[in-house]
Each structure stands twice: as structure tokens, then as C-alpha cells.
Design a protein around this nucleic acid. Structure first.
Lengths: 260, 260
DNA sequence: CTACGCCCTCACGTTACGTGAGGGTCAACC
DNA sequence: GGTTGACCCTCACGTAACGTGAGGGCGTAG
């Protein structure tokens, strides 16, 4: 029951503009974007003029304008848009500057934190405190049972003679590996690509320096990285979507290269 | 009645850390920073350990960490801080990139908007629509009475023969002037400095090309720039604190150079 | 005729506090 | 001993921009 043919329902408009229906309700409520008319059933119907206005709204919203300001901008036709934009530009510049500052400070903090743990190796496995180490071992045993117990034992034996430098080398190598994975992910290279699979091979060799997983166990390792919050945080530090990417690359590698 | 001498009340702590008392209440409420102990009267008392913790809290807050995350960070001793920081660094980088992007887009928009108004001069006074012009005239007459009426009349007569190019020239000159003011303000040069007063002289000459204010009227012009939202927006586009700075420079100039 | 999808209006939850209201406490001064 | 003024407390509502149900009407396809 659409009195006017050139009109769209909330869901349609939301689909066009990729915003939520609730946002449209809200924009109506605050008088930012009213529907062209409302049906007798209370339904909101929007016309092409409203769609154009919505475009403008989203444009300004992108820049972080408050909805209140946007309404004033759009509702006063003679408003000095350039001046307003310049004013906002200044704020954005200041924000960008502040963020750059923060990034520098954070870099320094990261460096000094890493130096601290490097200088204070105690009994750390590559920066993992004995307490955390124990927690991880418990987690793995609970999660994977005997298979994990054997893996941990093997790992402890293999690294028995290692010094802090050895652990640090492995950690650095793994960091580098993850950076490369993240780089390819960012570039849009799919997990089945030979370049990614080559990285997976390096990953597999790295794992084998600690223990020798069965093909099935290895295939599931990528999922492990997403399950424990500490692991996930570590991997997401390289790229927010690294975990599923890595998991797929690892699973593919296991299926193609290990089961054969 | 302070059981422990090395303890501080909310107000004291708030003073040290330059946060509000309410923030301390809130941090207590969410379990982020509990006082060392509470007196029988319900007063919160903080010790040096709490002060150190507060330092850490504010450090992470600076980077935009949520208070919830900060609590987790500080409460789990073995937490992988470097990884968390790197993860956050990524987010900051992404944010910085997005802002740079926005600034570029905004620059383009400003340019195209200004070109549009330049190409479509109609009856605009330097980009001011007749409608807005009327609004400003009413505002001035309401605010300053007859004095403003005469000024407006004089201004209209003086600019009678002007074309769009003349208005554009004046606008550009004024923009440049304001940029220089903003530059000196940013550099910390006080309004009484000869460099700023020289700019004020240029400002006065510019005003005189439109109308001839009495010394008192001229002295008050800076305040006008802060009173009307449109004017303020224009001036704050150059620098958020330009209005009071300009006002002071103008007042000083009027007192020193015009009343004599 | 009923199932399913879309629509509506409340109304509360979110973050990190700001801003009072209403009332007790502390130290000092008279 | 009373009073003043600065401080403290606990509610409790307001902010921005919606998200997320709850509970119920509307429309049409099988």
C-alpha cells in the first residue's frame, strides 16, 4: 500500500545507504531526516529528495560532524559551508597530530618494555612468564588432552639446552613470519597462493623445532590461535584479521603437503 | 580524621592527576581504582600505590584504551603488554590514515565549494548570500542601534561601484590577514607585540575601506566577531582561539593609535 | 488460514563521566 | 558551644548515536 510509486520503505533506504533501520528511526526522531510522508499504518516512506539529503548527512557524518551540526548545516541554506569545513579541518589536523604523537610514544613504550623483558629473562620462554606458561599448558591439556601433553613434553625436551638467546631468536623469527603473513593478507593475496603456502611451510618448520604435530594436529593449530585470548591478542597485533587467514593457510598446507 | 598520614582525599588526588572527583568516584564504582581504605564516614583515602596505579590508568587512557581494557591490562600481571600495545598501535595507525584521507577529501570539497560560489556570484557580498546579508544587518542594528545603521549605509555607498572581483579581493585580503594573526597567536606572540599591532593597523585600514568607525566602535569590533555564531565560526576556522586574541589586539590598537 | 517478513512504538543498555540535589563531616573561628 | 564554609558522601538523571530486544500490527504467498 504505497500511495506514491517513487517511495521507499525504511529497509530499502537502509539497504541503499548501508545504515541501520534504527538509524533512520533515530534521524526521524531528532528531525534530521523526516520521511517524505507516513502511511495510515504509520509506515515511513522516503522519496528521492530524502535520499539526496541522506547522502549529504552521511557525507558530513564521515568527517565526524555531530548530527546536530549536520542538521544546522543542511537546514540553513546560506550557511558558510567553507568556513565550517575549514574549522573542522583544523580539528581533524589537530587530531591527526595528536595520534601521530601517541604512535611515537607507544613505539617508545613498546621498545622499552621489550628491552626490559629481554634484560630480565629469568626463566621466560621468549617473554612468557612461568606463570603464564603454566596457564597455557593447563589450557592445552584441558583442550586437547593427551596429545597436547605429549607435545608439551617433547617441546620441553627439545628446548632443554636452549638459552634466552635461542628463545629470542625463535620469537623474532615468528614475529617476522607473522608480519609477512599480515603483509600478504593486507595485499589481498588468498591463503591458497603459493607465496602464502611458502610462509606456511616456514611456519610448519618452526613448529617442528618445538614438537612434531600429526597432520591433523597441525591443521588445527590455526584455530588454537583464535581460541585463547592471549594468543589472539598477539596475532591480532599484526593484523586484526590475521587469525582466520593464518588458520586457513595452515589447514590448506596440512591437507596438501602433510597428508600425502 | 585521617587514620593513615600518607593518604589523600579525592580532591587532593584529583588535583594531582588533573582529573575530576567524579572520575575517581566512577573508577571506584567500576573497580578500576579502589581507594586504599574508606573511613568510617565513608570518605575515600588513597595511598601512594593507588597514585601509581592512577598514573598507569591515565597513561593507557591517553591512547584511547577503554577503561575496561585498562583494568584487564593492569590486573593481569603476566599480560602481554607489548602485543596489546602493538595491537593498539595498528588501530591508531589506521585511524591516522583515515583522518589524513578525510582531510584530503575536505580540502577538495572546500576548493570546489569556493569555486562554485566564485562562479555564481549573483548578488553576493564576498560569498555572503543576500539572505544572510539581511540577517547580519538586522543583527547589527538590533545590537548596536543607530550607530550600526549609519555604518551599514556608509558601507553600502562605498561599495556601490564594486564588482564581484572587488569583494573577492577584500575577502582574500582578510583571509590572509587572519591567517597571519593565527600564525602569530600560534607562535605565542602577545597581542601588544608590534608585529600584531601592525596587523591590527592593516585590519583597521581594511575596515575603513567599508566604513569609518569611531575609536570606541572599532575597539568593540573584535567582540562582535565572537558574538554572532556565523562570524565566530569563520574566525575559529583559522584558529580556535583567534577571536579573543583578535579582540584584544584590536582594542589595544584602538586605545593606543586612535584615541590619541 | 497460517506462516513469514516487514513495519511500528516503547524502552533500556552502552561509555565515561558532568551536573546538580539533598544531606553528613571537618576544621576553624567567634 | 555554635556557626560558617569547604569538603565529603550517595543517588540519579543527562549526554551521542544508535544497538537490541519486547510486544504487537500489517501484508501476502502458499
Amino acid at each position: 500500500m504505497r500511495p506514491n510509486p517513487e517511495s521507499y520503505t525504511v529497509r530499502q533506504v537502509a539497504g541503499f545507504a548501508k545504515i541501520s533501520v534504527r538509524a533512520l528511526h533515530f534521524y526521524d526522531e531528532i528531525g534530521l531526516l523526516r520521511p517524505a510522508y507516513t502511511g495510515a499504518n504509520g509506515y515511513r516512506y522516503y522519496g528521492s529528495e530524502e535520499l539526496r539529503r541522506l547522502q549529504d548527512i552521511l557525507f558530513y557524518r564521515e568527517f565526524g560532524f555531530a548530527l546536530d551540526e549536520i542538521r544546522r548545516l543542511l537546514d540553513s541554506p546560506g550557511f558558510d559551508r567553507p568556513a565550517t569545513l575549514r574549522s573542522h579541518r583544523r580539528q581533524l589536523k589537530a587530531q591527526a597530530g595528536r595520534i601521530e604523537q601517541l604512535i611515537q610514544t607507544i613505539d617508545q613504550t613498546i621498545m622499552s618494555e621489550e628491552k626490559k623483558t629481554a634484560m630480565n629473562p629469568k626463566k621466560m620462554y621468549a617473554g612468557v612468564s612461568p606463570k603464564k606458561q603454566a596457564e597455557y599448558e593447563k589450557y592445552l591439556t584441558d583442550r586437547y588432552g593427551e596429545c597436547a601433553t605429549k607435545g608439551i613434553a617433547e617441546s620441553k625436551q627439545k628446548t632443554r639446552g636452549w638459552g634466552p638467546a635461542d628463545f629470542a631468536r625463535e620469537k623474532a623469527g615468528n614475529d617476522e613470519l607473522n608480519r609477512e603473513f599480515a603483509c600478504l593478507l593486507e595485499a589481498g593475496v588468498p591463503p591458497e597462493d603459493p607465496a602464502v603456502q611458502a610462509l606456511a611451510a616456514r611456519h610448519h618448520k618452526m613448529v617442528c623445532r618445538f614438537w612434531t604435530p600429526t597432520p591433523k594436529a597441525y591443521a588445527a593449530m590455526g584455530d588454537l590461535y583464535g581460541e585463547h585470548p592471549d594468543f589472539r591478542t598477539y596475532y591480532e597485533g599484526f593484523h586484526p584479521k590475521l587469525v582466520p587467514y593464518l588458520a586457513k593457510a595452515i589447514r590448506l598446507y596440512a591437507e596438501r603437503e602433510l597428508k600425502a
